[in-house]
Design a protein around this nucleic acid. Structure first.
Lengths: 159, 159
DNA sequence: CAGACTGTTTACAGATCTCTGAACACTCGA
DNA sequence: TCGAGTGTTCAGAGATCTGTAAACAGTCTG
């Protein structure tokens, strides 16, 4: 039983490292993967301090970043005075969905450039393709996530 | 004519700033958007130095990061001893496609965890959803990019 | 209301990153 | 083969980021 936990922790740290490489804050990533790979349904701040060997301030900061993104949430814990955090149901879909604002930003930037240069110029042609691509992606990505959600719900009847 | 260029440069810097916020290297982002919003087809390293007010070393570093991702490329420039850089055709599709390795990494991490914990546990159930999601996304995303490429080519006959 | 228990904020220290400037390497033409 | 013109690398300075420890604030219990 303990053996399994060690392997889970290793997998968690490994993923955290990868995500950190990709621009995510290191501690934020570690907190996220700790909750993701935890065998407990929820963890308290002090649990996270202990497992990750970091201060409470660091946990507070990481949580503050993670909650607005919809990856984790505070879980109601009647009878306990400590905050309990848990990985959110369908967090991945939420996370991927939030990419849409980035896609929109890219599209807007392209539009801005086109407004300045027109479509019939060197920059204009480049930006035209860019605008088209991101508009398409924004539309289709949202649809894709919905599709997955539906299929998943159909396969896993929650009622 | 000069007025337009100023607005283009502003748009470029604005997007670079946004991308930098999102984890991208600041200088790398600036080089990328400079090429993207440029009215010239290609730019030399010294062009980039001048426009962005950075050293040649910084340009070299940024280019070194940008080329492997497929966003920019060295352009053949007969008769010139300087390297000419240009934004790649269909760079966006390439860039989005490279997200697939990230999606695969996420799927692998989930599988790793499942191997350690089994599917019938608290962590196992979370990881099962994660694995399913990323497998789905990896598959469909690739298809999506192909679809766009086909449609775009159909609309813009290159021959 | 006092006191214990948590979570949050903040100044500071340590680490990390990134750019610059200069040395170095390479290529081409005379 | 030399020299000019470019690109690349690297040590070091400067800036940025991040975690800690401690002070602070809020909340529940007795």
């Amino acid at each position: 039983m303990d053996e399994k936990d060690v392997r889970l922790r290793e997998a968690a740290e490994k993923l955290a490292l990868t995500l950190a490489q990709g621009g995510m804050q290191k501690t934020t990533a570690r907190v996220m993967t700790a909750l993701l790979f935890s065998q407990d349904d929820t963890m308290t701040a002090s649990d996270l301090c202990e497992v990750l060997q970091i201060s409470s301030g660091a946990v507070s900061g990481a949580v503050k970043q993670l909650i607005p993104t919809g990856i984790i949430e505070r879980a109601p814990a009647p009878g306990s005075r400590r905050d309990h955090y848990r990985f959110r149901e369908h967090a991945w879909a939420t996370l991927m969905g939030s990419q849409n604002v980035l896609l929109a930003t890219m599209g807007d930037a392209a539009a801005e450039g086109i407004k300045a240069a027109g479509r019939e110029s060197t920059a204009g042609r480049r930006l035209d393709e860019m605008e088209d691509f991101y508009a398409f992606m924004q539309r289709e990505m949202a649809a894709l996530i919905d599709t997955w959600q539906e299929r998943y719900d159909a396969r896993h009847p929650s009622a």
